[in-house]
Design a protein around this nucleic acid. Structure first.
Lengths: 396, 396
DNA sequence: TTCTATTTATTCGGACGCTTGACGAATCAA
DNA sequence: TTGATTCGTCAAGCGTCCGAATAAATAGAA
């Protein structure tokens, strides 16, 4: 029990300061040299740690340096988008070994699952890792992921996936259980781990692309909501009559702010025919007056959504992401509009990782789960619960 | 270190199952009878625990029963409202011993601080507790409380308090440091501890009274925001033009939905002169058509705010509180309007504790802080942090 | 009443994990 | 070569926990 705590703090020190000697580990963790040698020895026997050289140049005896060994375990992050499939492989120490991506198999359904398995397998073998060594897998997917069951409640925009038991089938194909999480939530975690929101505890991630979505990170924790539906801001009563038919079906804000809404509004404004929101933005940059107006209105709506989030959860930073939100010209307009709307100034940044955010976030969660599997202190960490109002008297 | 964990789990068992014998404690906690006797003995010596009788009627030797002793410590919860001052005294085991309230001293400033000290002192002495025995004090106040400094950033609606170092002065007067927290947040925690939201982890508390405010409880934790300004939904861009002058100063939603806004709208609708929002609601109940319309519009605005919260954080339960929000007739109208607006049905309840919610929540936080002071595992509980992207190599 | 089964409570011995201090080993600098 | 310094191991001791044995107290059966 107390050994578990020692092992945990040694592992933590190894995560952040490798390569490191046993003597230094003892100083950092506060444990004795004796205990340290014992712990490191068991780590070495388990393959969690390996020798990596000796110190030199210092006065005194040289020390053996240790670092976390890739033998300790590998993790897989997968971003399953409607257009693109991305997979990343990392080792227990946090180093991302390789990333690969392909267009998502257009035939959908089981073909996509096969594609994921094939790509993951190739990635593992190309990096001298047998797929069976992978000890944690997290998959980013659009749609609502129920936090209790882990199942997908709203199928992603991929045909034929909604009838399949995706969690079970994919776990079987990959030889290890797969944890699902909403892609926007994972993009947010990606930005927090390796992106523009590092070391912050209160961050909101506004994703504007084909749809609109929000990721919330509060008190250093992801907000999923009771049904995993937190951040479904497509349904915010902004930008139109929330009782309208379109608003009921698709969500009031999404109807205006989604890519389809932008294209539609550009058409209604008499703009030349376009078939993607991207073209509207490009027209605006080239000076098309109608496009400029539509983009301005789009930024105003996004700022309204941002102001809503700022007033509700008071984040330290607002990250703009998604294929539309990450455009720097657009982000500037949103920031300017937000100054007028928000009760207090809030910093805005555009996504640093872009399309990679989701897969990086998936890797970060997969890593965290692996670490917790080895060194978790689940029941220890729980807060002392207060007594209920009706004192239960133990029947004697 | 490991003893601390044992002590902690024994205390937890005592909190929830007292009176209880040492033998039963051993069964519940999984510790040995031997260890249990040691721990309980030290608790008894520290005055944390006392004998309270023996078992009888069972076969076998009788057991000595123990319970948490009030000698272990008392806590104070204080709700400082603009109109009313409420103080509650509880003991370490969670029992609320007494509550008292008075109209807030209208002279404001230092008089109010004196009043708090006097009322607290009386409450302690009336319950055979010397004020010096009080080991944790939490005060509920309107306004934004900075979560880092603990200071009040927006002074409550009490004259003369904004120039004073309230935290320091009050701590001195009461002989123990005082922790401040937003009154709506504490009302929410009150409902979660003893009210209508017991044992839930995702709750939103919509407070409608002279102002509008929101309390958020997510993942079993209070959401304060980076600056303590989470839940400042008076600034939601709902119910009017958010760029208007009134919206900028007071908040767009608050301008319409606050008590003053209700009275104003009733006047604009040609209603008979009233001087409080309460009268508008009473007129509506007695059949006044204009009042009915104004109340209906008010409910619609509240439902829009609620829909915003539901779409953003997906709570399990929405509690309506505050002098206006807790009216059952009004809550029904809000619930009906929300069905049309929210993407998914969400349960709504009205506050069970009413005006007492704030002080009950203050007691709950004071208790939790006392428990953590004795049995906290702060650094143990922290999650394993992931390594930063740039691996720091220890300079050797 | 006496005896037995049962439960509570204490005592004792042993195991585990951690620390301290001493000591040998390895290295750099003079 | 010598001394200072640091690394790593060994041995001893301490705190905490557990399990087994034992004593104490009680209800129910004989």
């Amino acid at each position: 029990m107390t050994r578990q705590l020692s092992r945990r703090s040694v592992f933590e020190a190894l995560l952040h300061r490798s390569p490191i000697s046993r003597a230094d580990l003892a100083k950092v963790t506060g444990l004795s040299k004796q205990t340290m040698s014992e712990v490191v020895d068991t780590f070495e026997q388990q393959g969690l740690v390996r020798r990596v050289g000796r110190t030199s140049g210092n006065v005194g005896r040289t020390a053996v340096l240790y670092e976390l060994s890739p033998e300790g375990g590998h993790v897989l992050g997968i971003d399953l988008g409607a257009r693109r499939l991305t997979v990343a492989l990392a080792e227990i120490g946090g180093r991302v070994l390789a990333e690969a991506d392909e267009p998502t198999d257009g035939r959908g359904g089981a073909w996509v699952l096969d594609q994921i398995a094939r790509l993951s397998d190739r990635l593992a073998r190309d990096n001298h890792t047998h797929p069976s060594r992978i000890r944690s897998i997290v998959l980013a997917t659009p749609g609502v992921v129920n936090p209790k069951t882990g199942s997908i409640e709203m199928a992603p925009n991929i045909s034929g996936l909604d009838h399949l038991n995706v969690v079970g089938l994919l776990g079987e194909k990959l030889g290890h259980p797969v944890v699902f999480e909403n892609d926007i939530n994972l993009a947010l975690l990606g930005e927090i781990w390796h992106g523009c929101a590092q070391n912050l505890a209160n961050v909101a991630f506004l994703a504007l692309g084909s749809g609109v979505g929000l990721g919330l990170y509060v008190n250093g924790e992801l907000v999923r909501g009771e049904n995993g539906a937190a951040g479904e801001i497509g349904y915010l009563p902004i930008g139109g009559d929330p009782l309208q038919a379109e608003s009921r079906v698709q969500g009031c804000l999404e109807y205006q702010l989604g890519a389809a809404g932008i294209v539609r509004r550009f058409g209604e404004a008499g703009g030349s025919p376009v078939d993607s929101a991207k073209q509207v933005f490009e027209l605006a940059q080239s000076g098309d007056a109608r496009a400029i107006a539509v983009v301005g209105e789009t930024a105003r709506l996004a700022a309204l959504a941002a102001a809503t989030v700022v007033a509700t959860v008071d984040p330290q930073l607002l990250v703009l992401g998604g294929s539309i939100g990450a455009r720097p010209d657009f982000a500037d307009q949103v920031a300017r509009a937000l100054v007028q709307l928000a009760p207090r100034p809030v910093e805005i940044r555009t996504s640093l990782l872009g399309a990679r955010a989701g897969v990086v976030g998936a890797v970060s969660v997969a890593l965290r789960r692996l670490h917790d599997e080895f060194f978790g202190v689940a029941e220890l960490a729980s807060a002392l619960p207060l007594p209920p109002p009706a004192q239960r008297h133990a029947p004697q």
